[in-house]
Simulated scan of single mutants.
Amino acid sequence: MTAISPAATDTLAEWLTSIKALNSAADNTIAAYQTDVLGYLAFITQHFGEETGLAPLKRVQVRDMRAWMAHERGRGVSARSLARSLSAVKSFYRWLAEREGFDPTVILSARAPRFQKKLPRPLAIDAAKALIDTVEMQSGKEWVAARDVAVITLLYGCGLRISEALSLTGADAPLPEVLRITGKGNKERIVPVIDAARVAVNRYLRACPHPPEPDAPLFCAIRGGPLRPRAIQKVMEATRLQLGLPATATPHALRHSFATHLLGAGGDLRAIQELLGHASLSTTQAYTSVDTARLMEVYEKAHPKAR
């Protein structure tokens, strides 16, 4: 294990604390940043053959950055993961350079490896409907079946993340016409609630033997505790096997399906960005590529000159 200097580790801790406070970054994001930058610091320590205090960090050159990236690729790190690590290192250096007063251009100008962006894998509209219709068959308990249908309907009908759906409390019931959702990075957004979701949640509440308190989770586990994401993931797995759907038919795929189907029906990209809670429009634009890919598939199957 490469020993990183106390100065470097303390500085990294200060940076992580600052981005958590200023950017309201999620715990998973902070953990990923920590892992990525620690890996970089460990390499630089070994590369220079000395503990990496702050002085060595300031004298990193282009060749050193190339050596680190080559090392990462050599140990099997994908281009996508390396690009993420480089982004974390650059963010760390921006903060460090401002605090220490040095020029970070060498690090900031390092180019990330190219990689093909993964497109979301939405379900077809009829597959999404079939999934919702089939979910309730996975449980012999009426109230559990109603609960699972309610959660799945919220994911597809409102574009919620599974964590957002499971964070609803008894105070949110009965569901209003719009929900105020706090998503990633504590960003708040307004989400319209379709009638089908309100009906599904009301059905669950009527059947549930554990009436939720205003400050308790809306969706309960069998014994009355908070419902965990794994329970919904498992019921999705059973449902997709029954319907013969691919392994990509996950709870999060329902959120992708919500966005893609809205876009396909003529929804405005900016409005969909707001509904999903994406900080950047470029994230939402991935759905444009999905829709284009679907249109090309239809074209190639149907157009006489494409066959």
Rank of each mutant, 00 (worst) to 15 (best):
A110M: 15
L269N: 12
A197R: 04
A112C: 05
G266A: 08
S87V: 10
L276P: 02
G264W: 00
A31C: 02
K234N: 14
S167C: 06
T29Y: 08
Q242E: 15
S282W: 06
S139K: 08
C220I: 09
L263R: 08
L175K: 02
S167M: 03
E14K: 12
E51I: 01
G183L: 12
V149G: 00
D64A: 11
S81Y: 05
L54C: 09
L41K: 04
R180E: 14
Y299R: 04
A238D: 13
R66M: 04
L119E: 07
W68R: 05
V77N: 13
H71K: 06
G101K: 11
D133K: 15
G53K: 09
E188N: 09
D148E: 06
A207G: 03
A286N: 13
H210C: 07
D291M: 14
I4S: 11
A25G: 02
L22C: 00
T29D: 07
G170H: 10
A25K: 12
A171F: 04
T2R: 14
Y287C: 10
T35R: 15
E274M: 14
P214G: 14
T288Q: 14
S78L: 08
G53P: 01
D268C: 03
G159N: 01
R75W: 08
V178K: 07
L123V: 07
L54D: 05
A79I: 01
Y299T: 06
K301M: 09
A3M: 10
R240Q: 12
R255P: 07
D215F: 03
R230M: 06
G183Q: 10
M69S: 06
Y40H: 13
F102M: 10
L160G: 02
L262F: 05
E300H: 15
C220D: 00
Y287G: 13
F258Y: 13
F219P: 11
K129R: 15
R80W: 04
